[in-house]
């Protein structure tokens, strides 16, 4: 374990930390922990802001849109939290955050559109155990489509997200 002469150092973002003694793995872990915390709080903030969806009444689109049941919102946001956590812990990187959008038929979309690709995942009443999804890197490249369990993380989808969003 290396000793250092100046233990106080600046982390990215300006925070200072003092660690004595330190090794390279500990220092990196400290950065990742702080960045992960900041990122996870962004995801939590997005989910908190999406709670307005639960207040939408019938006709919220000025026509005949249905309200969104809490179970649908729970499924969508729990799913997002699971994948955010997976990226944080396994890939040590941040998952691009989607839009969380209510749909007229009472379902919820998680929709990603980045410069690299797009992904749409829909949570609805027809199947409360699974969500249906489609993604590509535009022009039908690297298409991915199907149904996915709302519980846990499916690695093939997480890997697609990492490479294509």
């Amino acid at each position: 374990m290396r000793e250092i002469s100046n233990p106080t150092r600046c982390l990215p973002g300006g925070e200072k930390t003092t660690q004595l003694p330190f090794n390279k793995t500990g220092f990196l872990k400290d950065i990742v922990t702080k960045m992960g915390y900041t990122y996870n709080s962004e995801a939590e903030k997005l989910i908190e802001q999406s709670k307005h969806i639960l207040m939408l009444r019938e006709g919220w689109d000025e026509e005949d849109a249905l309200p969104i049941d809490e179970i649908i919102w729970e499924n969508a946001t729990s799913f997002l939290k699971a994948y955010v956590g997976y990226f944080d812990q396994i890939y040590l990187t941040a998952l691009e955050l989607p839009e969380i959008n209510p749909v007229r038929d009472g379902s919820i979309d998680l929709e990603w559109r980045t410069s690299k690709g797009r992904l749409l995942i829909n949570f609805n009443h027809r199947n409360l155990q699974k969500a249906s999804f489609y993604g590509d890197r535009y022009a039908n490249e690297d298409r991915i489509k199907g149904d996915i369990s709302i519980k846990g993380v499916e690695e093939h989808l997480a890997l697609w997200m990492k490479n294509c969003l």
Binding site: A65, E99, V103
Partner: peptide
């Protein structure tokens, strides 16, 4: 409707093209 337009890229959201079971 403006609620169906993305605030990120100003394109229609996918939710814009799905009707209610009634409609």
């Amino acid at each position: 409707g403006i609620d169906f337009i993305s605030s990120k890229d100003y394109k229609p959201r996918a939710s814009a093209f799905r009707n209610t079971p009634v409609k």
